[in-house]
Design a binder for these strands. Structure first.
Length: 498
RNA sequence: GUCUCCAUCGUCUAGCCCGGUCUAGGACACCUCCCUUUCACGGAGGUAACAGGGGUUCGAAUCCCCUUGGAGACGCCA
């Protein structure tokens, strides 16, 4: 049994997408599960769509998820490709370079070999010719594809040309896919695909086959969208006399509308989820569960990275695509946040507050933090929830005070009484505050929610806040009294309005 | 248009390969109730699915065929 080697092979045309991330997770999980290697390879053969910084970005995003490839672009390679290496691990490995644009010679050599074998041929048709051909085919309602005009023209190697695969006229191509099962194609409609572009760069089809072979990849895990070009790859392996790796085509992740997940559906880039305050463990857990299930009858939904590594298997990958349910992700993320040791949550809270541009004394935050921790689903919700602790003026929407059993007049009374009650407290603990305020409810004769609601608005400026007594205790007596004093005239004035 | 893949609650899925134990299980969401100072958390219930039609069989969510629906591919993009 050969040691397992899997790879994630993104093209650096943008940021890491959750779909791509899940492909990476599956490949990484399989490698870790079987004690094999996980390789990162960059497929940057399209010079036009290349986005500077994308390679470093990919590596950083994977790192955020706690995934560091066993092999991948070294610093030297990154530099050659014009990438930044600051804060980027120096991967490297025995099968490099791991950036395809650095391996051009190898592909060209294989292409020459293929031409010599008669499997491929040179073609000098211009893009304009091809487009016209395609349009005519479409007009005739035929399936579009290259006619094979240059097949036997022996186009000179010195002319500007591409190299095409000579698709057999009649051949049955069979792929035993690890998730889809046996898939069969007839070669005829497959057409003569370009393998080497006129700029000397390989297309995906050539590069992927050559690299997976050269890098001794044993399992190709990739998105469903590649299934239709798999027969080309199978034929290439056969023509080259190379042993095929295991293919596993992963079910797609769809948006809520059932179509391919796109920015319109919500966040798609992992960096955006990070900024919103999703935890990497939660996002990983969630995405892995789209298209994979343990399936032993347990009701488990929350899996640690280690659980996943132990339990993952290619056999349990499902065939049908799944919709990315943002709501369920939010639930799961909240569950991960609640499970955090408080100190960790505290640090996250401090970072978030700092980013929001206000300051909260650490003692105040610490007093209320645990209550906030069980209330947020994403880290971004922390700041608005603790903003009342900041040393800055409170903005109050007094209209929110009014309820079925609460008027502004009565609110004035509530505030006046609360001021007396709280003001005479020797210490400002949760119990003391509750002891003082509880009797006020019966005294006023309104629902507890309404009475305490008045205090929430007056002191914290919001109707929905962490629990009142804890909040006041966190604020401290001095600040609480000051805020009541500020609110009293405002409420009286509002009550006096017609 | 051609090719390929897919099809269990609204969503993620278990069950399907090895038909009976499935009056189809879990989770998210939703609804009700409990807890309760708001919001959450937690707890107890509830609504909700085998796409349709034919076979095969004593028996089908499970096997076969067809239909329908959905998705992807058909580029000197990956």
């Amino acid at each position: 049994m050969k040691p397992v080697r899997t790879r994630f092979a993104p093209s650096p045309t943008g940021a890491l997408h959750v779909g791509g991330a899940r492909t990476a997770f599956f490949a990484w999980l399989l490698a870790r599960h079987s004690g094999g290697k996980f390789i990162l390879r960059i497929e940057d053969t399209d010079r036009e769509r290349l986005v500077p910084g994308a390679i470093s970005g990919m590596i950083q995003e994977l790192k955020w998820f706690g995934i560091e490839p066993d092999e991948g672009p070294s610093h030297a390679e990154l530099l050659q490709a014009g990438e930044n290496i600051e804060g980027i691990p120096n991967l490297g490995g025995a099968y490099g370079p791991y950036i395809q644009s650095l391996r051009g010679e190898r592909y060209r050599a294989v292409a020459e070999d293929l031409i010599a074998k008669g499997v491929c041929y040179r073609c000098d048709c211009t893009p304009a010719m091809l487009e016209q051909e395609r349009n005519e085919q479409m007009a005739r309602k035929e399936s579009p594809g290259y006619s094979g005009y240059c097949r036997d023209r022996n186009v000179s190697a010195t002319a500007k040309h591409v190299v095409r695969f000579r698709m057999p006229f009649k051949k049955t191509v069979v792929l035993e896919d690890a998730v889809k099962g046996r898939v069969v194609w007839e070669s005829a409609p497959l057409k003569d695909t370009v393998l080497l572009k006129s700029d000397g760069m390989p297309t995906y089809h050539l590069a992927v086959v050559v690299d997976d072979h050269d890098m001794e990849i044993t399992h190709i895990l990739r998105g469903d969208e590649w299934l239709s070009s798999a027969p080309i790859h199978v034929l290439l392996y056969e023509a080259l006399g190379w042993e095929k790796p295991v293919f596993a085509h992963l079910p797609v992740i769809k948006g809520p509308n059932g179509k391919k997940l796109s920015k319109r559906d919500g966040s798609v880039n992992t960096s955006v989820f990070r900024e919103d305050g999703y935890l990497p463990e939660a996002l990983l857990n969630f995405t892995v569960l789209i298209g994979w299930s343990e399936g032993d009858g347990t009701e488990q939904e929350i899996y640690t990275r280690q659980d996943l590594v132990e339990k993952f298997s290619i056999e349990r990958i499902s065939q049908a695509g799944g919709i990315f349910d943002y709501g369920k992700l939010a639930w799961m993320n909240g569950s991960y946040i609640r499970a955090l040791p408080y100190e960790e949550f505290h640090q996250f809270a401090k970072q978030r507050i700092e980013k929001s541009g206000f300051t909260v004394p650490d003692a105040r935050l610490r007093a209320i933090g645990p209550l906030v921790q069980e209330r947020v689903k994403v880290l971004a919700e922390i700041s608005p929830m603790v903003e009342f602790l900041a040393e800055k003026p409170v903005e109050r929407d007094l209209t929110q005070i009014v309820a079925k059993d609460m008027t502004l007049e009565r609110a004035s009374e509530v505030l006046g009484r609360a001021k007396d009650l709280l003001g005479s407290l020797p210490s400002f603990s949760h119990d003391q505050i509750e002891g003082a305020l509880r009797p006020l409810v019966t005294e006023i004769g309104a629902k507890a929610g309404s009475v305490f609601g008045v205090l929430r608005i007056a002191i914290m400026g919001k109707k929905v806040t962490p629990p009142l007594f804890e909040s006041l205790a966190a604020l401290g007596k001095e600040e609480t009294m000051a805020r009541i004093d500020q609110a009293v005239p405002l409420v009286s004035a509002a009550a006096a309005q017609p």
